[in-house]
């Protein structure tokens, strides 16, 4: 460890928690917008950010009565930033919803094995979404089928009926740490990934590193 490392460490510690949360939220938003499948719900981060947003809205409401032109301008800045945060959160949630909508049955199965995948409202949404859909299918056509043909999760014949996201889709990733050798399953490709490198690679090959925070999708 040389002097630069020590300085970097001190720097990293001096970054306020708010700024770290913004960085983390931004990264989570990009990951959710880019990755082909749903990622884990960052519950601690979202709790902190949503609580801060709630407080900020309250303070804006208190200050709105103030007619001093100088206070007015700081209010504009605060509100502009508030809108930026709201956009981030909204876009993040909507990106997650669209993935849940697209592969509801797949995520319903996965959410039972990994409970941290969805937030509680997302679980609720997924449940009512599936309930509505299956009620609709049953009423419109499934009810007229013989009972043995009504299953929607049949996997006989080697083809699963439940459709999942394309886990092998190509993504752009940036390495945040040296991760060493990365191999692509099913092919003979292997390559060395060092910190700062940008690669185009299958999502399934780098998923583990992205989840651990050693790589980020861009």
């Amino acid at each position: 460890m040389d002097i630069d490392d020590i300085l970097a460490e001190v720097d990293a510690q001096s970054i306020p928690q708010e700024t770290k949360d913004l960085q983390e939220l931004t990264r989570a938003w990009i990951a959710e917008r880019v990755a082909p499948e749903l990622l884990k719900w960052p519950s601690a981060l979202m709790d902190r950010v949503l609580e801060r947003i709630r407080q900020q809205i309250e303070s804006v409401e208190e200050q709105t009565g103030n007619l001093d032109p100088k206070a007015n301008f700081t209010l504009i800045i605060i509100q502009t930033e508030l809108e930026r945060f709201k956009f981030l959160i909204r876009s993040f949630l909507r990106a997650r919803l669209s993935k849940i909508d697209a592969h509801a049955a797949h995520y319903a199965a996965r959410a039972t094995s990994t409970p941290s995948l969805l937030s509680s409202s997302e679980t609720q949404y997924l449940r009512s979404h599936t309930a509505l859909l299956s009620a609709h299918y049953a009423a419109s056509f499934l009810g007229t089928f013989p009972a043995s043909l009504r299953g929607l999760e049949d996997s006989t014949g080697g083809v699963r009926m439940v459709d999942g996201p394309d886990e092998d889709g190509a993504v752009f990733v940036r390495a945040l740490r040296d991760v060493g050798s990365v191999g692509v399953e099913g092919t003979e490709r292997r390559f060395e990934v060092r910190r700062g490198d940008v690669w185009v690679v299958r999502w399934s090959a780098v998923r583990g590193w992205v989840e651990m925070g050693d790589m980020e999708v861009i």
């Binding site: 190509a170 692509v184 099913g186 092919t187 003979e188 390559f191 690669w199």
Partner: peptide
């Protein structure tokens, strides 16, 4: 097919523009 193409130094807007094609 395997992907694994290195693109160091690429810019954000370039990724956005090239993603649909390269992907």
């Amino acid at each position: 097919a395997g992907g694994g193409v290195q693109m160091n130094g690429v810019g954000g807007m370039e990724v956005s523009e090239g993603r649909a094609f390269i992907g």
